[in-house]
Design a protein around this nucleic acid. Structure first.
Length: 512
RNA sequence: GCCGUCGUAGCUCAGUUGGUUAGAGCGCUAGAUUGUGGAUCUAGAGGUCCCCCGUUCAAUUCGGGGCGACGGUACCA
């Protein structure tokens, strides 16, 4: 026996997972449904490579001390750093800028594929995961943002999740405007305030208030430094983010001009101590425009909801931001309730393309976290991960007649039936049956010397046999009755197999 | 990064108040059944009790330090 210490332990780096046939089939179904919705909305596919130059992906170059902080990076032959992509948006910006001359504007595209992040994995968070994005580049109006939100909702519906999600929509200008109003101008402090607002659904208003003030200690003992706002400031923020409707905060007449907006006042107690700002008004108007588009298209607040606590990424969103939240709780394999986070998000990023081109290029888009969504659905039993139907297995009874058996397999395949010859070394019949069972084979074909002399084959419908077997407890009876087994003339074999329900179902789902 | 819980068979877990042969269920392999998947019964394989150092006559068990898993939190383009 080999020494165990000499063997390599088969294992994966953390945050990476293998996929089995049922998982793969489920993901493929999800992807097909998403693609169908995106194409219906008029988006076309593009593909970009896994690797990009690091400078393409983000504003930072990896310093030689920590080249792999957050991303996976390697140095090319010419010593230029390249990285595995960590999302599908930066590569799109590069693609758009690189092919600017030839692309239709606005440019509407979707992309699906693996992305990589070198960070600590969590529930539903992996170091390699799949995203499915759609973006409109070169359109500035709120109708392109609203369209994206409606497509997010339609996509979730198409995935069979109607009623189990909500698309939450906000506008960064509203947040910026309120911060400006209450006198938060320091960039670092602004980021801290935004992060605090983002935690509303996690910690509630009380927790956010701590984060806006001195700081907060969580149950595990970790302390988070707060934004150091005074009471009036943090009350104003909490009032803003807790508003059920924007109209609760301020009244703006639709036909009033910009000057009229500036004369308006906040209606709520804490906010009314501060003056309203231009940025708030701009964001407010954009959100109102989107809201009326949602209403006109019959997307109610049960599907798309204006929610002033949505923040999203801190770096590049410039206007509307949106995310998909699941409205059910998720438990892991151990039965623990788990913090899952959003399964998709996006927004307007008018600055991203300008890293590559001088002119201003508005863009909006979003991304569905396919892997994270699939993992949530798997944990809650909502993932359609039925076992894959296996092949019809032709057993080997007489070793010198392999050619005859292979001919049967070829005939079945030619008719569009998934079929294979038993290739294992053991010609023991029980082994071959067990193999077929484990493969979830719909049927096996048996021809020994008796059948050969009569010109017939035994066809065993394994599903029917299993069903019949449920009432048989005696092994001898089980063997002699041979439930679900039929003797059929060889020339009728293909037609007979086609009639087996599991085979027919597979053929319908996989036309030749 | 920080905090918490946990590491014993492929999986889920018992157990050893520090003592010589470490167990169960499931799974796996074989047989009962030389041509029939389930069920049943029988037998078998499978373990550096996560690693290293220390305490001890003796450590899987106690102490220290690592590593890993899970969860929370921070960060998240």
């Amino acid at each position: 026996m080999a020494k165990t210490s000499a063997l390599i332990e088969p294992r994966l780096p953390r945050g990476f997972v293998d996929s089995e046939p049922a998982d793969i089939a489920a993901i493929e179904q999800m992807v097909a449904k998403i693609r169908h919705v995106y194409e219906r909305y008029g988006f076309d596919p593009i593909q970009t490579p896994f690797f990009e130059y690091t400078e393409t992906l983000g504003k930072f170059l990896p310093d030689t001390d920590r080249p792999n902080a957050g991303v996976f990076s390697v140095q090319d032959d010419d010593e230029q750093w390249m990285s595995l992509r960590y999302d599908l948006t930066a590569p799109l910006a590069r693609y758009f800028a690189q092919n600017y001359q030839d692309l239709p504007k606005p440019f509407r595209s979707y992309r699906q594929g693996w992305v990589f992040r070198n960070e600590k994995p969590g529930p539903g968070r992996f170091r390699q995961f799949m995203q499915f994005d759609a973006d409109t580049v070169g359109a500035a109006g709120p109708e392109s943002d609203a369209e994206i939100c409606m497509m997010m909702a339609d996509t979730m519906d198409a995935l069979g999740l109607a009623g189990k999600y909500v698309v939450r929509v906000n506008n960064r200008k509203v947040l910026d405007g309120v911060m400006q109003a209450i006198g938060v101008t320091d960039e670092a402090q602004k980021l801290t305030v935004l992060r605090a607002i983002d935690k509303l659904d996690k910690f509630g208003p009380g927790g956010v208030k701590l984060l806006l003030g001195e700081g907060r200690k969580d149950e595990s003992g970790d302390y988070t430094e707060g934004a150091k706002l005074d009471a009036d400031q943090s009350d104003a923020i909490i009032e803003m983010m807790s508003a059920a409707r924007l109209d609760d905060l301020v009244d703006l007449e639709d036909d009033a001009g910009p000057d009229g907006f500036l004369d308006a006042e906040f209606k709520t107690a804490a906010l009314s101590k501060f003056r309203i700002t231009q940025s708030f008004v701009e964001g407010f108007v954009e959100l109102q425009a989107m809201a009326s588009l949602f209403a006109a298209a019959n997307y109610g607040p049960d599907r798309i909801k204006i929610d002033p606590s949505v923040v999203r990424g801190l770096e590049y969103y410039t206007g509307p931001v949106f995310e998909i939240e699941l409205t059910f709780t998720v438990q892991n394999e151990k039965g623990q309730d788990v913090v899952f986070g959003s399964v998709g998000g996006g927004g307007r990023y008018d600055g991203l393309v300008s890293r590559f081109r001088n002119e201003h290029t508005p863009a909006t888009g979003f991304s569905i976290g396919v892997s994270r969504l699939a993992s949530a659905l798997k944990l809650t039993g909502n993932l359609d991960a039925a076992p894959v139907t296996g092949p019809v297995v032709v057993t080997v009874m007489e070793k010198d007649r392999i050619a005859d058996y292979q001919k049967m397999v070829a005939d079945l395949r030619a008719a569009g039936i998934r079929a294979e010859l038993f290739l294992g070394s053991s010609k023991n019949m029980g082994k071959q049956m067990k193999y077929a069972d484990k493969r979830n084979a719909p049927a096996v074909i048996i021809q020994g010397s008796d059948e050969r002399e009569q010109g017939v084959v035994q066809i065993k419908d394994l599903a029917e046999g299993a069903e019949a077997a449920a009432s048989i407890t005696d092994n001898a009876a089980w063997k002699t009755e041979r439930p679900g087994q039929y003797s059929v003339p060889l020339e009728e074999m293909v037609e007979f197999v086609k009639q087996i329900p599991a085979v027919a179902a597979w053929m319908k789902a996989n036309p030749k």
